[in-house]
């Protein structure tokens, strides 16, 4: 089990009702964590909609998670 810090922005913050949470998970990669949280919150995003940041840098979905990581799922961006 791994303890992680998740931060939510924009549409995911609205979907979860949280700006951040700390959770304990059996998910080994960011991708499996995304599926776990999709089950929990029923948000309307798929894996292809989302990019993943771990400790404030973009990382591939199959990146292994480590104790204490800060994970952010990035919904489609709309700057500019």
């Amino acid at each position: 089990m791994t303890i992680l810090h998740i931060t939510y922005f924009a549409a995911l913050r609205d979907a979860t009702g949280y700006s951040e949470e700390t959770l304990t998970t059996e998910a080994v990669t960011a991708k499996t964590l995304f599926y776990e949280l999709t089950e929990k919150y029923h948000w309307r995003f798929t894996e292809t909609d989302i990019r993943i940041a771990i400790n404030d840098r973009y990382r591939p979905p199959d990146t292994p998670l480590k104790e204490g990581d800060r994970v952010v799922f990035i919904p489609p961006v709309a700057g500019g």
């Binding site: 922005f9 924009a10 549409a11 961006v77 500019g80």
Partner: peptide, 21 residues
């Protein structure tokens, strides 16, 4: 526009809001 994690919520004159993608 493609890479920087910034999001935009539009507020409409009818009171609705939505995140733009």
């Amino acid at each position: 526009k493609a890479r920087v994690p910034i999001w935009k919520k539009e507020h409409y004159s009818d009171g609705e809001t939505t995140w733009v993608r």
